[in-house]
């Protein structure tokens, strides 16, 4: 069963302590149930989930990292082989949003340069305590090329959690199809270069 997939993506969750990374993972894995209370993640926790997009089976490996700064020397080594990174902050704690710059620095130093990121504002159910607006996140998104999209989630209410993973998986799938085609099919490669060269010649 577990080998029955068309794509395998490694997605790493990073972000400050207690922004809800593990809750997002659990919610994504269990769907409608939100009962587990979390222990702190020491080092890295690994889990996985199969999803379907279109007619493709996609296996997502979830690497849930400890937010505690002391562990960054270990967790950063896991960014390296990641295909996608979810940078999670807590919309009720401005500090966790302001750390973005530092997380980006870590990503830039330790990931392959083709990695794609999404900015995830968790705990959006706590509207009264909000300290970061969605607009602020969107603005940052536009400034940072690695960040493909931003999204607010609530692991508690199950808002947008699946969406976050699906979107990043879709994007990876598209890129990968693109590469596959590029490498594996001469026809398509020719067709493509033709259209591109057409464009250039104009």
């Amino acid at each position: 069963m577990s080998e029955d997939f068309d794509f395998l993506f490694k997605i790493v969750l990073i972000g400050d302590v207690s922004v809800g990374k593990s809750c997002i993972v659990t919610r994504f894995k269990t769907g409608n149930v939100f009962t587990e209370r979390h222990t702190n993640t020491i080092g890295v926790d690994f889990s996985m989930k199969n999803i379907r997009i279109g007619n493709k089976n996609i296996k997502i490996q979830l690497w849930d990292t400890a937010g505690h700064e002391r562990f960054r020397s270990i967790t950063s080594s896991y960014y390296r082989s990641a295909h996608g990174v979810l940078i999670v902050y807590d919309i009720t704690k401005k500090n966790t949003f302001l750390s973005l710059q530092k997380w980006l620095t870590e990503i830039r130093s330790y990931t392959a340069n083709n990695v794609i990121c999404a900015l995830i504002g968790n705990k959006c159910d706590l509207t009264e305590e909000r300290e970061v607006t969605l607009d602020e996140a969107k603005q940052v998104c536009e400034l940072v090329p690695e960040i493909l999209f931003c999204l607010e989630t609530s692991a508690k209410d199950n808002t947008n959690v699946e969406n976050a993973f699906t979107r990043i998986a879709e994007e990876l799938m598209n890129r990968q199809s693109c590469i596959n085609d590029d490498h594996d099919s001469n026809n398509i490669k020719l067709g493509q270069s033709k259209s591109v060269s057409n464009g250039c010649n104009c």
Binding site: E3, D4, F5, D6, F7, L8, K59, R80, S81, H83, A112, N113, N114, V115, R175, Q176, C178, I179, N180, D182, H183, D184, Q192, V196
Partner: peptide, 30 residues
């Protein structure tokens, strides 16, 4: 790290070895 399809394997090994043209570059160049 290896999927059931060859392309994924290639993707992965490119990624982990950090050599070859990365996917991003090829995607971006296109």
């Amino acid at each position: 790290t290896a999927g059931s399809t060859t392309p994924i394997r290639r993707f992965k090994s490119m990624n982990s070895l950090n050599t070859a043209t990365s996917i991003a570059t090829s995607v971006n160049s296109i």
